[in-house]
């Protein structure tokens, strides 16, 4: 249960959510609360339901039971993907999804916050502020020199960055980030971590990650949630979680780094 005082500070509420696929319980009675400005890391072995968890929040699938709310009382289960996105929930996918036949610049333009209607896009003219914002983002994700490249020609790590850039272009309140470090070099991974840390506070962020070094980096202040078999196994500081015997048993026990 949450008190009113806590409620004002909550941006995402997931309570008692269950989701079954063909008899397989992907998510079982999941409870998850995200505060405004929080950076939360979610870990868990393969099949723990991390991707389904994101799917449920972003409207890709609907829960069988339970409630998912945004902010005060916006029921996310009644909305579809683009409505949820327009509320200010952005998602980065595990496998980078960028528009491969569009240039980097166009990828960012399409993601910029702004009217999303058919006719407003038909008569859209890119303003100088928008150009400036795109330039800013290009510098941030270090793709300035490749602005005219087709996104499909970028390296895997660069695509990850581009997708993060696209996410930032939307200026969402909540960022759901699925394995951002996959396919990046150690240096890039570190910089990604720095970026996410710098975004915390202004945005609320949930990061799903396998890479334990990366998790350790970004979870230095925030909480870590361990998912196992579709439900929350434990939640707390990184060190506490790491010390938890149950976690060791189901997850860390299988190898320090999980699968990458």
């Amino acid at each position: 249960m949450t008190t009113d005082q806590e409620k004002t500070n909550l941006i995402l509420t997931v309570e008692g959510v269950t989701k079954t696929f063909d008899g397989f319980k992907a998510i079982t009675n999941l409870n998850f609360y995200l505060d405004r400005g929080e950076l939360r890391t979610v870990i868990g072995p393969n099949g723990a339901g991390k991707s389904t968890f994101f799917d449920l929040i972003t409207g890709r699938t609907k829960p069988d039971t339970g409630k998912i709310e945004f902010g005060w009382d916006t029921d996310l289960t009644a909305l579809n993907e683009y409505e949820i996105n327009r509320l200010g929930i952005g998602r980065k996918f595990q496998t980078p999804s960028v528009y491969s036949e569009h240039s980097v610049w166009e990828n960012l333009l399409l993601s910029l916050k702004g009217p999303r209607g058919v006719f407003s896009t038909l008569f859209h003219r890119t303003s100088t502020e928008q150009c400036d914002r795109i330039d800013e983002l290009l510098t941030l994700i270090r793709l300035d020199a490749k602005r005219d490249w087709l996104a499909g020609q970028l390296a895997h790590g660069e695509k990850q960055w581009l997708e993060i850039g696209m996410l930032l272009a939307q200026d969402p309140q909540v960022l759901l980030v699925d394995e951002p470090a996959a396919g990046m070099t150690d240096d890039e991974t570190h910089r990604t971590g720095e970026l996410l840390l710098s975004l915390a506070g202004k945005h609320s962020i949930v990061v799903v990650e396998h890479d334990m070094a990366f998790v350790k980096q970004i979870a230095r202040d925030g909480k870590v949630t361990v998912l196992h078999q579709g439900t929350v196994l434990c939640e707390g500081k990184f060190d506490d979680v790491q010390a938890d015997t149950r976690v060791r048993e189901v997850y860390l026990g299988r190898g320090q780094h999980g699968t990458r």
């Binding site: 890709r60 683009y82 996105n85 999804s97 960028v98 896009t121 859209h124």
Partner: peptide, 24 residues
């Protein structure tokens, strides 16, 4: 136009378009 960009974006990755807030 931007609509043309979205049109081709739908062709290459409709779900990304949805998750970018466009009603594909």
């Amino acid at each position: 136009t931007k609509l043309g960009l979205i049109q081709r974006a739908i062709r290459d990755g409709e779900n990304r378009v949805l998750f970018s807030g466009y009603a594909a």
